[in-house]
Write a protein that binds this DNA or RNA. Sequence first.
DNA 1: CGGCTGCTTGAAATGAGTCAACATAGGTGG
DNA 2: CCACCTATGTTGACTCATTTCAAGCAGCCG
Lengths: 248, 248
Amino acid sequence: MAKIHNLKQHSLSELRNTCKNCSLAKLCLPRKLSDEDLEHLDEVIQTRKTLQKNDVLFEQGQHSRYLYAVRSGTIRTFTTAKNGDEQILSFHLPGELLGLDGMDNEIHSCSAIALDTTIVCELRVTELHNLCLRIEGLQRQLIRLLSDEICKDQNMLLLMARSNAEQKLASFFMNLSTRLQQRGQSPNEFELSMTRCQIANYLGITDETVSRIITKFRQQRLIQADKKSIKILNAKRLQSVADSYYHQ
Amino acid sequence: MAKIHNLKQHSLSELRNTCKNCSLAKLCLPRKLSDEDLEHLDEVIQTRKTLQKNDVLFEQGQHSRYLYAVRSGTIRTFTTAKNGDEQILSFHLPGELLGLDGMDNEIHSCSAIALDTTIVCELRVTELHNLCLRIEGLQRQLIRLLSDEICKDQNMLLLMARSNAEQKLASFFMNLSTRLQQRGQSPNEFELSMTRCQIANYLGITDETVSRIITKFRQQRLIQADKKSIKILNAKRLQSVADSYYHQ
DNA sequence: CGGCTGCTTGAAATGAGTCAACATAGGTGG
DNA sequence: CCACCTATGTTGACTCATTTCAAGCAGCCG
């Protein structure tokens, strides 16, 4: 809490130090930033918003004015298909950006809802664009972030197309683990903020399958799983399950 | 051919007129471009490269210096998984950009190979960045393109996660159809430049399944298919097959 | 001509989905 | 504080879409 208060002064410079792999921190990587620039940046992301569980951050089709950076909590983004079907696209952890999809036509192409109590920073897109004109490195960083997002999606496509349910789930846990570690948390012991059902949706499988495979992993002593709390017992083997893709 | 020669003078201004929905054309949408700016832009994309079938444009892991715009022919991009498995990420038609994934760390995250004889324009990334500094609208357009790419990937994720083989293939044909139409070609009659096997890989199903479903579509008089030449007989019904996602 | 790749089709095998029952926990209201 | 209700998670039995394996055909090329 004290930390969060601190951020009101120098959000970005703080982030740069505390969370080196966060996408928000990447935004201010260029060294050239003057104190003045940094202050401007800080101003842009001054605004904070607190969401309760199931609160909507934005909805598909809405006009998109902001990028958001998760400070604490988790946001899930999802698209709604023509038939009303929902597909979860991503779970956004603290330090991660969302809203990048809306920079094309300024319309959100997905919806975003809080999984638990969540604090986000708002970055007004127009202001960010203006800053980009003033700060050379910033523009490139923004492009990098977008490009990075594309890479992530493409990895996800690889996972969806070439892996079976077991590999998908193993990948999911390992991915969560590394992302948490990057944020300075324990990579092997964490609380899930999403339900089994949401994991299933995200991975394109059914809840029952998720449940069965978690049981299997537990029996194989790969993980310990009690409701939402997960402990990875054998990260190496879990990774090898994730890596041994379907069509060997 | 005459057209292509013409382009050597004013590639982008030409593209802007002939191919309004092409991503390359989008790049020069801002009206503010002066003649001088336009000339600069034209210079950047002067370089052309002709690839024969199966020629490699770039490979995963290589340093990424260029963006490419397909002028004619088709390029397929794919990632190679740890186990050597390949996943086709996209088929790039004339007017479409590729290489956007490499703007993060300047390393290509996928490989690109020509499906047939293909001509591409090279855009040196550093020059593009420099131009972005001079031309305000250009930077925003670049960001739009990246954002658009993210949206496409997310739509693909939706398709992969929530559709069965029949819906995937129907979507594939309809998607090709609209993209060709945007480029001024017939939406209902076209030649495939990829093999059944490559379609299967792209959609995350097997060659045999692709073959069977094409036969089924033919029997249902949705399409006419003789080897590589496809004719859509009932676009409306084909679209409705694509839209009625799996979990109704 | 023979060998190769791409495409099609059939039959059998199987991974994951569906349906259903039950367990548990959390929240609500009497 | 207990009873009820709903949402979530687990497990079993059965079904089915898709894969796998196998065979055959056509076109292409050295």
